[in-house]
Amino acid sequence: MAAAIRVRDLAKRFGLLEALRGVDLEIGQGEFFALLGPNGAGKTTLISILAGLVRASAGEASVMGYDVVRQYREARRALGVVPQELVFDPFFTVRETLRFQSGYFGIRDNEAWIDALLHHLGLADKADTNMRRLSGGMKRRVLVAQALVHRPPVIILDEPTAGVDVELRQTLWGFIQDLNREGHTILLTTHYLEEAEQLCERVAMLKDGRIVALDRTENLLRGEAEHRLELRLSPPALPESLRPRLLQEEDGVFHLRLADYGELEPVLAELRRCGARVEGLCVSQPDLEEVFVRIMRGAA
């Protein structure tokens, strides 16, 4: 089975600037994949090469096994891209926009699917509104619908939730997750790392045009420092035996290091043994944001 997305030794120069410096990446069919990285890391450039909007300086890229340059028609048919920029054609209504997009992909009568897309993205009552009159978030929804008119097996979303309200974010991700369950491959970029953490099985982190981390999300999180246990005690004193775990003490709250949840029970037993009563307790897990920050710092 061909990889949904395959990129080999991909490089892109804009004049003197090296936007991509030898990227290798393979995303399997049906994966939900996050491409993360700071501003200017090269995420959009990589996506644009896959979409045929930008020509690579070196290396190759393919979508569902089709080379994006030599077999551009097949590759583009297999790919739906939600661009990062909010673009629209002010001459047309939402429905016209979607009809034209279907037509560009060679699909003649697409009304049923267009209606379904409008419904899923909460645009049904805006179908005949001119694009100019939509709010920013609604324009973004139309971009998502446009990327899906031809039911592409591979869907790329370049920061689809930038400037989008909580409700749409949830409906959008619900919809995208359904598509993923039906077998569509999803590649997304986002600066909201908790989104990536919740949704994506695998994560690649890009910095200065290089991949600096690539792993399953849970592995990245596991590699991260321990959990953190926050305790409020009465009396407000930490038993001496727990001192080695202390990370910091703040307003009578003790922050303790935990390797994993398994260590919670022994810590509580020790507190009980020393007669300390727990008045407040909170365990925080490492999150992707911490991993991201550490990796970006390390890769500097």
Partner: peptide, 17 residues
């Protein structure tokens, strides 16, 4: 107009020859 507004991507993304 399509280039400046950016909506030229709509058909650049499509498999038009």
């Amino acid at each position: 107009q399509s280039k400046i507004s950016g909506n030229i991507v709509f058909f650049l993304l499509a498999p038009l020859s």
